[in-house]
Design a protein around this nucleic acid. Structure first.
Length: 447
RNA sequence: GGAGAGUUGGUCGAGUGGUCGAAGGCGCACGCCUGGAAAGUGUGUAUACGGCAACGUAUCGAGGGUUCGAAUCCCUCACUCUCCGCCA
């Protein structure tokens, strides 16, 4: 916590840093449209106490005004002293007059910082406001199916899941992953490892050549500023692997973090928007809250490969970009001829930072179920505010927040599972999807 | 890992402890000039917070300190560049 001893003249700048990093939603909205915000948060089943907020905010205003008055007094008397000194006058009298100011100012500044951190803590826990089209609902059971593509393949033999298919031919080795590292790690062998690489290549090529995304290669370790920018910190540290203490560095949970942070602290020219990036990376998740879920197989691993697509748009364009970006992810599934359904997440299942999310769920014959393979979200200005990612609006001449969006295009590990299970035959072999043939060096079946 | 030099607005680049949010150049915007343009010339040109506004406050890599007053002095850290070493 902040002690009064290290509060100096620069303490006011701390105040602005807090605003910069922890205000996820527009503070003006809370000051001017508190009722609206309260209703919106209720839809998320988020308990927000407007009275508590109003009281804090009133105190903040009072103390901030007082602090600024004292700063004004100090500044103007210092100026007077400077002028008097320049004329060679005796300034002792003036110095005596301001002797008490320093103490008073320090007290006020300290108080301001305390109030501000309370306000910040409150604001930091508040999720993004939902898009009006997001349906009511408390959990994943109330998500709405938007569309369905393809039909589940019919097999005239007993289908195997990817674990049986993979371990039988020693393509997947969970024991080896456990030996080398621990549970929820896996080793892929031979042609299956190649198939995953083919999937990644195929996705990168499709998004960069056909969908207009710029391919990027980024660091897999990120600092705390970057994680704050996209919203993983301070709230979700438990989901991350920390790789170094000093400096504090974390393994990325998704390429979204480094890629979206490309625009942190940048004022973008209108002409280059929208920015579209595609990036393959490994992803590292401690999955702290998921013990006991999907323990069998490689559905839920601590390390997996993913191709991420990211868009940075003007505010007016983000809704359309969200539809487009989701279609780009769907396109991969369609080209692979993998049956899937598109779900609009309900209020209770939409992630903390997102205003609207579509999940794509691929058909897994081995589980006889649809499972998430992509999540496409519009964050609107929620991340941009923390990132200070802006564009200069020619209409106003002012820098304004951009909108950020991203989606998995797709999670390669889970896509590999889907290919294995949907393309299996009676002998337990895996046929190579047509679009991947150019990447497999002539191989058509993994035997 | 060792040695040295840096970090100032959109950009380049000045900067003395005191009317410094910061000279000057470039860029950009709007005028003037011109038949039109270039050149020339004039004016303007950061961000955030509070305020109806006037205006006030803060910000010169980050954080602390000294001082009535810090871009300027002191301490810590980060980053960039150059040289040496090591290395895929």
């Amino acid at each position: 916590m902040v002690s009064s001893q290290n509060i100096g003249n620069n303490s006011a700048s701390l105040f602005f840093i807090f605003i910069r990093y922890f205000f996820m939603l527009d503070p003006h909205l809370f000051r001017n449209e508190l009722d609206f915000v309260t209703v919106q948060l209720k839809k998320r089943h988020f308990a927000f106490n407007p009275e508590n907020y109003s009281e804090l905010e009133a105190r903040r205003k009072l103390v901030q005004t007082k602090t600024q008055e004292l700063q004004n007094a100090r500044n103007s008397s210092s100026k007077t002293i400077g002028q008097a000194k320049a004329k060679g006058e005796d300034v002792q009298g003036l110095l005596d007059q301001v002797a008490h100011l320093g103490e008073e100012l320090k007290t006020a500044e300290t108080e301001l910082i305390v109030i501000q951190s309370e306000l910040d803590a409150l604001m930091a826990g508040i999720p993004n406001l939902l898009d009006l089209s997001v349906p009511e609902g408390k959990d994943e059971n109330e998500n709405v199916e938007v569309s369905r593509w393809g039909s589940a393949p019919q097999f005239d033999f007993d289908v195997k899941d990817h674990v049986d298919l993979g371990t039988a031919r020693h393509l997947l080795d969970f024991e080896l992953g456990a030996k080398i590292t621990g549970s929820r790690f896996v080793v892929l062998n031979g042609q299956l490892a190649r198939l995953q690489r083919a999937l990644i290549q195929f996705m990168l090529d499709t998004h960069s050549s056909e969908n207009g995304y710029q391919e990027t290669y980024v660091p897999y370790l990120v600092n705390t500023d970057s994680l704050r920018g996209t919203g993983q910190l301070p709230k979700f540290e438990a989901d991350l692997f920390k790789a170094s203490e000093n400096p504090a560095l974390y393994l990325i949970p998704t390429a979204e973090v480094p890629v979206t942070n490309i625009v942190r602290d940048v004022i973008l020219d209108e002409k280059i928007l929208p920015l579209k990036f595609v990036c393959h990376s490994p992803c590292f998740r401690s999955e702290a809250g998921a013990y006991g879920r999907d323990v069998r197989g490689m559905i839920r691993q601590h390390q997996f490969e993913k191709v991420e697509i990211v868009q940075i748009t003007k505010p007016d364009d983000s809704a359309k970009a969200h539809e487009e970006l989701t279609l780009h992810a769907e396109m991969i599934l369609q080209k692979l001829k993998l049956p899937y359904r598109k779900m609009l997440l309900c209020a209770g299942d939409t992630g903390f930072s997102s205003s609207k999310t579509y999940d794509l769920e691929v058909w897994l014959p081995g589980q006889n179920a649809y499972r998430e393979i992509s999540s496409c979200s519009n964050f609107r200005d929620f991340q941009a505010r923390r990132l200070q990612a802006r564009w200069r609006n020619p209409q106003t001449g002012k820098p304004e927040l951009v909108h950020t969006l991203n989606g998995s295009g797709l999670a390669a590990g889970r896509t590999l599972i889907a290919v294995m299970e949907n393309y299996q035959d009676a002998q337990g072999r895996i046929h190579i999807p047509e679009v991947l043939l150019p990447y497999m060096g002539g191989l058509t079946i993994i035997e």
